[in-house]
Simulated scan of single mutants.
Amino acid sequence: MYKKFKACVTAFNNWFDEICNSFDYSWSNGPLEVTHTKIKTLNRNCFGMKNFNLFRKRIMFTCK
């Protein structure tokens, strides 16, 4: 049990500034990650599209 707690304390010490910044600023990369995941999923599902313009239109329609 002590080893796990020690690992948690080490991680907290290594990421202290970033953890404090997450409370000070309301910025998040969550919306960007969602858009990136949607594009990657579309890329897998639309593998057989004939050209890039159709694929681009599909991305723009999905990520509205």
Rank of each mutant, 00 (worst) to 15 (best):
K6S: 12
G48R: 10
F61W: 09
L32E: 10
F16D: 10
E18T: 07
G48Q: 09
R44C: 02
R58K: 15
F5R: 08
V34S: 08
F23A: 03
I19G: 01
L42E: 10
N43I: 01
N53G: 05
S26P: 02
K57A: 13
F61N: 14
I59S: 01
I59H: 02
F23C: 04
F12S: 03
N29K: 11
N13V: 10
L54A: 12
N29L: 06
W15K: 13
N45V: 00
K64V: 08
K38M: 08
K6F: 04
D17M: 04
S22H: 09
K38A: 08
F47E: 11
F55D: 06
E18H: 03
V34P: 00
L42V: 01
P31Y: 03
C8R: 10
K64N: 11
S28T: 15
N21H: 06
D24M: 04
N13C: 10
T41W: 00
C8M: 13
M49Q: 08
W27V: 06
A7E: 15
T35Q: 10
T35H: 03
T37D: 12
C20R: 04
Y2M: 06
F47V: 07
D24G: 04
C20S: 10
K38W: 03
R56D: 14
S26M: 05
T41Q: 02
S28H: 01
W15Q: 13
K6N: 11
V34Y: 05
W27E: 13
A7S: 05
K6H: 06
